[in-house]
Design a binder for these strands. Sequence first.
DNA 1: TTATTTTTTTAGAGTAATCTAAACTTTTTA
DNA 2: TAAAAAGTTTAGATTACTCTAAAAAAATAA
Lengths: 217, 217
Amino acid sequence: MLSFTEENYLKTIYHLSDSGLKSVLTNEIAEAIQTKPASVTDMVKKLAIKNLISYEKYYGVKITRQGKTEALNIIRKHRLWETFLVEKLGFNWGEVHEVAEQLEHIQSPLLIEKLDEFLGFPSADPHGHPIPDKNGKFKVARQIPLAEAIGKKVVARAVKNSSPAFLDYLSKIGVYIGATLQVIDKMDFDGSLEIQIDAKKKVYISKEASENILVTE
Amino acid sequence: MLSFTEENYLKTIYHLSDSGLKSVLTNEIAEAIQTKPASVTDMVKKLAIKNLISYEKYYGVKITRQGKTEALNIIRKHRLWETFLVEKLGFNWGEVHEVAEQLEHIQSPLLIEKLDEFLGFPSADPHGHPIPDKNGKFKVARQIPLAEAIGKKVVARAVKNSSPAFLDYLSKIGVYIGATLQVIDKMDFDGSLEIQIDAKKKVYISKEASENILVTE
DNA sequence: TTATTTTTTTAGAGTAATCTAAACTTTTTA
DNA sequence: TAAAAAGTTTAGATTACTCTAAAAAAATAA
């Protein structure tokens, strides 16, 4: 069984590697986990011995099939808890991350199965990120940044940046996961967009923001 | 802030001391926490420095006012989570303890307030044990063992022994917290009782069992 | 009240995770 | 392609918690 710390490393490596596609360097992990590169080297060796990642000195790590399975299970738990916090307890979507970071380490397969059922087997968390099923499977519709949907009518599916400040901003202007967004116009001088939400409210959003909202057509 | 381990020691000391009344010896703590007396001595010194207990070498520890507050908060969290697991997720009352042992250490006052509200501010957990409020206050109706309620009509309020085996047995014969129990007869030769549950089903229960069911008149 | 037993503490060591400083590799730059 | 810079690893120390074995204190029995 993995320790709290090992789970955090594994999850971080999975995310940094783009779901296991690329290899990840020591410094990136250190930055993400807020620790020193020397500590990462130590932990990475431990995870390699357990066959969760493969480690080549000086060239970073790649997650193994086994490591991916473990990582997806942690991500599943994280996203189910976030869904619970928002849907059942009434948290704002910007408040849930830190609590879910703790809850994701609770060890009880039965608890997670029952929680999943209680939530109605959701396929995405409050930020629109897909929730892997028991076997680590999930489907993602092809999503594009809102910035690339000029003139189109699309549905908001996820956010790329989950910082509380950004989520707070979105709530204020009325953008939420599931909202229908029509991109009316693009300002040439700064790339900001004029959009209409749910065929009602019209707002302007910055280029930066439009690149962090993922949508489907 | 207290570590996971410190919280477990404090909670255990609180329970062993009868809610802070008596002092508790090193060996009792070691037994309860499944560790060695030498480890207890170390930890007890740490907790004493933090003013959560007072420690007199060779004579055991007493919990302080501050320690009691912390302990009650952990117990509050434990019991709210147990209630959640049974009422919302459909766990059996014998399955919840171990999971709640983990959940009680999650650090988020907001989470606990929202959970409390979601559950409708319950005053007792599924075993009938009182849930302290935010300020550590709770009221206990005067409870007596069923064994002392001969001939009376009472309401089951709590169990003294929370072992899965006992809880399982109670479920099987149909006794639950809140059930109305009428003690019809007491067998002289072994002290077992004939009881009627909710004015319906009649069953025999052993002396042992009747001492572990707490009731109010 | 002395001797024996039981309980508790101390001393010293081990494990997991972390750190700093120094050494070593790789990458970049000139 | 040699020198400088950036990134990574190693060595050795630190903290929190645990343990065993030995020493010390308290409780019990003779």
